[in-house]
Write a protein that binds this DNA or RNA. Structure first.
Length: 595
RNA sequence: GGGGGUGUAGCUCAGUUGGUUAGAGCGAUCGCCUGUCACGCGAUAGGUCGAGGGUUCGAGUCCCUUCACUCCCGCCA
């Protein structure tokens, strides 16, 4: 493409263009002014071309004064660079453009943050001037990567026989799950739409409508507090759903897709091409978390039984165990020679995390097996042998122990597993370790209210033969509910859905919802399921997190073009903002207090 | 809602035990410089030390309150 702005882009010119007259347009990335000779690095989306002008040219004085990031058009001639002046860092580094004429296309004020630098800047300023920030190399490339990943996924999904559909953005609020974003309805005063937390019900309705395989790069809106890996407001999922499938069918589609995506867009190795399956229960025991980082070789062991032995005299733990606490431990290989500070640092760190600390000892053999460390003396030789049997620990290894009630114990051992692995540098940053976490429980008991609640998704299919499910023991019911985890990041969750209305009423009644309420809140769904629904299931991998892993970023805002800050404000667009009284009146809304 | 961290020039940061007129690099402005690619050299401008209060002869520094940003917990079916 050649027009009045350019004959080439800023990454196109090579040796073979030497001698030709060309037109380039772009931003002034950097100037190097030698007084009688001026270098200008002209930048566009594609790259950088060095342009040069000297005092013989009448434009020289003006160009010397021009601000960085001004958009200009340059007419000139491609010239060869001598060997010593070739720049191998850029693709156009063998040539430069001798400037004949130039024109300013867009002026630029003094910059609030430099564009050409690789330095890190405060997010507040980056988000306020996001359009400048996005010109910077790294984030510019991240956003391009995101585009390429999405278009690759679209293409793959299409090849796999999935059809892409859009679903409504204005929908109804649902009682389960996260806090909704609400939108007042002008035509229905006092009533509200909700933005979808996910197209969950719609995608099931698509299956009931007879479309066999659906996908969508779907925006999801949840009004919850932010984290580094969680944008406030909105995020994107690769939402997909399939009819007449079992869990394994969903797994094989998603594995194929993720393996090809990660192989295409990253040089890091996949630890498993076939993702291992870990049950929820096993994950909580061995890793203390339902999003285990399998790059980390450390495993948590339950050794509660040791503390009912007579030859163990660690009374603090023994007393706690009698009142229902458990003891779990992490074994580190060959750490007997680590300095005392290593152990104490971890102990102190655990205290900072709100735990009572991490007790530890090291297994050593002098005349006979013994435990060294502050609590070593409380363990007999036999009890140590039993611990070694339970955990696979060997002489020279150290054992870190925590004692608490199950939930706190899981949390602290999970954190400790990460912390200790970091301290010992056990995590290989150059791999992706995927796994499935399966067999989630259908229900859980709320610790505060003591009520039975859905633990994940109320629309999931319970496991086992439907006639034989024991609803009087709801906590034992498992669901066909699954997550994909990669490097400790929860990438997606999905389920085989419950397509049988009677069964759904039963499950909802366990969680305290009457048939009437279910009919009211999920009328669309429950009604649809009563008119011939196919068995179906799906999953929804998070696009932002996938790109985050591929771009090797720890913060989701580094792969999001226009993110909000932690307080869900858009500093560039000034959202949220006040609205006029007229708007409020139309919506039949009055504010309690106005600022 | 709770805990941690940060806040000093347009940007990135330094600032000792509380002690004179708060510094550096980049950027800006002006001058010098024809082969740089983080060009170099010289000069100038630029500060409510986040805000408010307190202690003190004296506060960027100590104390209290508060605000903003960020990380974490809660929350996120």
């Amino acid at each position: 493409m050649s027009n009045k702005y350019r004959t080439h882009n800023c990454n196109e010119l090579r040796k073979e263009h030497v001698g030709s007259n060309i037109v380039l347009s772009g931003w002034i990335n950097k100037k190097r002014d030698h007084g009688n000779l001026l270098f200008i690095d002209l930048r566009d989306n594609y790259g950088i071309t060095q342009c040069i002008i000297d005092k013989e040219n009448s434009n020289f004085k003006e160009l010397e004064k021009i601000q960085l990031e001004t958009v200009i058009k340059i007419e000139g001639k491609v010239v060869n660079r001598s060997n010593e002046t070739i720049n191998k860092e850029i693709k156009t580094g063998e040539i430069e453009v001798g400037i004949k004429k130039y024109k300013v296309l867009g002026t630029c004020k003094e910059l609030p943050l430099p564009v050409f630098s690789d330095q890190e800047y405060a997010e507040e300023i980056r988000l306020k001037y996001r359009f400048l920030d996005l010109r910077r190399k790294k984030i510019h490339e991240n956003i391009i990567l995101r585009s390429e990943v999405i278009s690759f996924i679209r293409n793959e999904m299409s090849k796999l026989g999935f059809l892409e559909f859009q679903t409504p953005i204005l929908t109804s609020s649902s009682p389960e799950g996260a806090r909704d974003f609400l939108v007042p309805s002008r035509l229905n005063p006092g009533k509200f739409y909700a933005l979808p937390q996910a197209p969950q019900q719609f995608k099931q309705l698509i299956m009931v409508s007879g479309f066999d395989r659906y996908f969508q790069i779907a925006p999801c809106f949840r009004d919850e507090d932010a984290r580094a890996d969680r944008s406030p407001g909105e995020f994107y999922q690769l939402d997909l759903e399939m009819s007449f499938v079992e869990q394994e069918d969903v797994f094989s589609v998603v594995e194929e897709l993720l393996v090809s995506t990660f192989k295409k867009f990253s040089s890091k190795k996949l630890l498993f091409n076939k993702f291992p399956k870990i049950t929820y229960k096993e994950a909580m025991l061995k890793y203390g978390s339902d999003k285990p980082d399998l790059r980390n070789p450390l495993i948590i062991f339950d050794i509660t039984e040791i503390f009912s032995r007579k030859d163990v005299s660690f009374e603090i733990f023994k007393k706690l165990v009698k009142t229902g606490s458990m003891v779990r431990c992490i074994v580190t290989k060959n750490t007997k020679d680590k300095p005392r500070s290593f152990f104490d640092n971890i102990d102190n760190w655990a205290k900072d995390q709100g735990a009572s600390g991490l007790a530890y000892f090291t297994l050593e053999k002098e005349k006979e097996l013994l435990a060294k460390g502050p609590i070593g003396k409380f363990f007999s030789k036999d009890s140590l042998e039993e611990i070694m049997k339970l955990t696979g620990a060997e002489i020279g290894d150290s054992v870190f122990l925590a004692c608490s009630k199950q939930k706190d114990l899981e949390k602290i051992t999970s954190l400790a597993r990460d912390k200790i692995a970091q301290e010992l540098d056990l995590i290989d940053n150059e791999i992706f370790a995927f796994c499935w976490v399966i067999d989630y429980p259908m229900f859980e008991r709320d610790e505060i209210t003591n009520k039975i609640e859905f633990s994940h998704n109320p629309f999931s299919m319970p496991q086992g033969e439907i006639e034989k499910i024991n609803f009087s023991k709801p906590l034992d019911i498992l669901a066909y509910q699954y997550d994909i985890v990669c490097n400790g990041v929860e990438l997606s969750s999905g389920a085989i859905r419950n397509h049988i209305p009677e069964l759904m009423y039963k499950l909802f009644s366990v969680a305290g919802y009457s048939e009437k309420i279910v009919n009211e809140k999920f009328s669309g769904m429950i009604n649809a399921l009563s008119y011939g629904a196919p068995p179906h299931g799906g999953i929804a991998p998070g696009i932002d997190r996938i790109v985050m892993l591929l771009a090797n970023e720890k913060n989701i805002r580094e792969v999001t073009m226009f993110p909000m800050n932690q307080n869900a404000q858009d500093l560039m667009m000034n959202a949220p903002s006040n609205v006029s009284d007229k708007q409020l009146k139309e919506l039949n809304i009055s504010l309690k207090s106005k600022k």
